[in-house]
Design a protein around this nucleic acid. Sequence first.
DNA 1: GTTATTATCGTCAACATGACGCTAAACACG
DNA 2: CGTGTTTAGCGTCATGTTGACGATAATAAC
Lengths: 228, 228
Amino acid sequence: MTLNTAAVTVDLVLLTIRQGALRVLLITRGIPPHRGKWALPGGFVLPDEDLDGAAMRELREETGLDPRAGHLEQLGAYGTPGRDPRGHVVTIAYLALLPDLPAPVAGSDAALAAWRTPEESTGLAFDHDRILADGLERARAKLEYTPLATAFCPPEFTVAELREVYETVWRTRLDPRNFHRKVTTAEGFIEPTGNTAIRDRGRPAQLFRRGPAALLHPPLLRGTSQRG
Amino acid sequence: MTLNTAAVTVDLVLLTIRQGALRVLLITRGIPPHRGKWALPGGFVLPDEDLDGAAMRELREETGLDPRAGHLEQLGAYGTPGRDPRGHVVTIAYLALLPDLPAPVAGSDAALAAWRTPEESTGLAFDHDRILADGLERARAKLEYTPLATAFCPPEFTVAELREVYETVWRTRLDPRNFHRKVTTAEGFIEPTGNTAIRDRGRPAQLFRRGPAALLHPPLLRGTSQRG
DNA sequence: GTTATTATCGTCAACATGACGCTAAACACG
DNA sequence: CGTGTTTAGCGTCATGTTGACGATAATAAC
């Protein structure tokens, strides 16, 4: 039965919004191959460990975050021969959308892990450039027809904060009034908590939490308005 | 580096429309485990073989079909410990949408392979019930916002044939007039070939081929009309 | 010819969208 | 306190899209 075996790893595309920009968590590799290069965090799947379980374990190890705080889903399998010089290594990539973390990165040396923008994140080890590109594309597409933008937000958030998620991930500006109408009328997207908050300036805003919907009806299409 | 290795297989969810129903290709297992049970076709990834390449090879072996005739995409990785009694086996599942094949199933014993409806396809070997369910869900979702319904059609097809694809996969009825308007106005979905064809009865219909679009704008949402 | 059947175009009300005006409620400043 | 600035959130309107369905065209069967 040992016709052909491969090592199986999981790699994580961890996305968050920090300092007004979409950022991905990268680590520097401490051991060969690609020693010293930037790479996506990841590791081997342990014996008797579920793929999803391995991804959740890695997420906890890298960020100290409970996977339930954000969103974690499988992105795809990458197994091109030669993608790892050590031999046949198949990696299962996962995509996570996370709220901005209170602590930088728990459990990791700050010099070895950093939140980078996608533009700063070229030349990664292995085929991680491709995996990152696939993850970004998946994230952008999913914001249209799922309520996953809320995964980038803390438990309570304002409509403006949710709009900033869309504007950041899609690299566009959205009309605040039309956006407000769309997200508050989309069934099950967000629910008012009854609380209000003052963010920087201006009138206080209502706080919302994520609603029960798994799909957006109608979707928030990207062809929305550009604001002056 | 041999910390933990697993066997890597590909399994295929091959969907087509035959005799007015959506059908999936199943095989009967000739060897243990699960000998005699129905299962999705699949096999081991060969050394130095790409995952996509292994899926295309299996597709050719099982159907005799060129992968370019339909659509083939990765569905996901399944690696729960215990899913295969032989040990740690991770499978990469692929989803294919295929036109109705001229020959039944080339290169396979007819008694060992069959096109079954999803309703007939419960109790499969391994975790193939789950993989099949995920594949069906993916196919249904993708018809909404991609032009992949054309992958179920021959190179030239009528609007009515395309509509039957949607009706079959979604298990609904769509209004022929509104459907015609939507697919002919959606940019790059289908292109007229200039030919016409008479199908069963009635006025001859124009023939179309698939257009260049990769995404449907606007999407064909499922909330369409029920016809009496 | 008449009838049955399907293709394709047209109409219309309901709804959704994008552009944008307007008021409300906070803070900063004098 | 009053005024200016900022953001929240509501309202309006022209335009586009959708679903329901009428009408006509083009074929085969008879």
